[in-house]
Simulated assay, not measured.
Amino acid sequence: MSIELRDALPSDLAVCHRCLDDVAREGRWLSRLSAPPIERYAAFVAGLREANAPQVVAVDREVVGWCDIAPDASPVRAHVGNLGMGLLASYRAFGLGRRLLTLALDRARQRGLERIELSVLHDNEPARALYERLGFQIEGRRRRDWKRDGVYRDSILMALDLGAGQG
């Protein structure tokens, strides 16, 4: 599988939005069940660009996955980034998530971010294993964080300290 990894371009906006929507509609991995309206997503992406924040994509004719790290808005947490990522189902289990995350973390280091935080569902074993392989540590758990169709799921809070030479 020959997939190009690169920084997201402004022209990727619509297909990134569609990719986010496809992953969200699976209802299993993200903290949303669909993508936000395109206008709100465009504002989020514009904020990433304005902050010189990492947003990388995997492309196989069109975007099939993404990883972004949004800097925290608080001045006292400006060194912290919040990670979001996803891959279309047919592109999982080929090492693409690791490649995307590694590139995004490299971009975060270049930007001067020192700490990367994320939340992952407790039963998303592939994602948790990936994050742990790249040096993320479990820092907490939000019990009954997710509720869908009467079923609760916990979220695991993880972080990577880029300043400690991990990753």
Rank of each mutant, 00 (worst) to 15 (best):
D106P: 06
A43F: 07
E114Q: 13
H79D: 03
G163T: 09
R153K: 12
I69T: 05
G97R: 01
G65W: 00
L87D: 02
R144H: 12
A108T: 10
E117N: 09
D22F: 05
A164V: 05
I38Q: 15
R61D: 12
D72A: 11
G165W: 06
R111H: 04
D123F: 08
A104Q: 03
H79I: 02
G47R: 08
S34T: 13
G81I: 01
A73V: 06
R18G: 09
A46V: 07
R77G: 12
R115T: 07
A24D: 06
Q55W: 15
L88R: 13
L33C: 13
H79Q: 06
L9S: 14
A51Q: 10
G140I: 05
G150P: 00
V59G: 02
C19L: 04
G47H: 07
R148E: 14
A89K: 11
Q110W: 10
D145S: 14
L162Q: 09
Y41K: 08
A164P: 02
L134W: 00
D68Q: 10
R61A: 14
L96Q: 01
A78Y: 00
L162V: 08
L48H: 08
E26K: 07
R25H: 07
A35T: 11
E139S: 11
L33S: 15
H17G: 05
R107T: 01
P126E: 05
E39D: 11
R148Q: 15
R111E: 09
M158D: 07
L105N: 07
R6V: 00
G47D: 04
A42Y: 03
G140N: 07
L134N: 09
E62F: 07
R6D: 01
L103C: 10
P54A: 10
D12A: 09
M1K: 13
M85H: 04
G167S: 13
G163V: 05
G27R: 08
E39K: 11
D68M: 06
L20P: 00
W29P: 04
R18W: 07
P71M: 04
V64L: 05
V59M: 00
V63K: 01
G97D: 00
L105F: 03
L100A: 03
L162K: 06
R115K: 14
H122N: 14
G86P: 01
R25K: 11
A53K: 04
L157D: 08
R92D: 03
R111L: 05
I138V: 15
S11W: 09
L88D: 09
E125G: 15
A58I: 03
L100T: 06
Q166E: 13
V80W: 00
